[in-house]
């Protein structure tokens, strides 16, 4: 079971809340302070992407974020319920423009550039971005 779970309406204004919660739980789980910026950015990218997928495909379901303390790892899953056609590669990013597609690509590029352990999966019923970071074995006391 996730340590903390979050569901929010697919609206841009809630992405910041998800970032703040994720960073707070990551800190408690013992993720290094120097890495918290990456956690914040990566979860924000994943949530922004989910919000835009829900909005563009007219899905009214909330975006799901599961934050889990594991032994010496901290993992985040961001799930959407938008139907995905084909998996796209996050590697091929040009200068980009303002089109939703390229924002999506840039978001994935940022995530894959930041996070060593990341898995992106998707099918017709939705997609999940799963990321994890090392954490101290004993949770921080503060």
């Amino acid at each position: 079971m996730a340590t903390v779970e979050l569901r929010f309406s697919a609206l841009p204004e809630h992405v910041r809340t998800a970032r703040l919660v994720a960073a707070a739980v990551a800190r408690r789980a013992g993720v290094d302070e120097a890495v918290l910026d990456e956690v914040r950015l990566a979860v924000g990218e994943a949530c922004s992407r989910a919000v835009s997928l829900h909005q563009s495909s007219g899905v009214s379901a909330p975006v799901r974020v599961a934050l889990t303390e594991e032994e010496k790892r901290f993992s985040i899953e961001v799930g959407d319920e938008a139907p995905h056609a084909v998996m796209t590669s996050a590697d091929d990013v040009g200068a980009g423009d303002e089109a939703a597609d390229s924002d999506d690509q840039m978001g994935l590029a940022v995530i894959s550039g930041l996070v060593d352990d990341v898995q992106v999966s998707a099918d017709e019923s939705g997609g999940v971005i799963r990321m994890s970071w090392p954490a101290a074995s004993a949770p921080a006391l503060s």
Binding site: G44, S48, D97, E98, S102, M106, G107, V110
Partner: peptide
Amino acid sequence: DSTGLGVLVG
């Protein structure tokens, strides 16, 4: 984030 990058590129 990347949305901001997209705006700057635009």
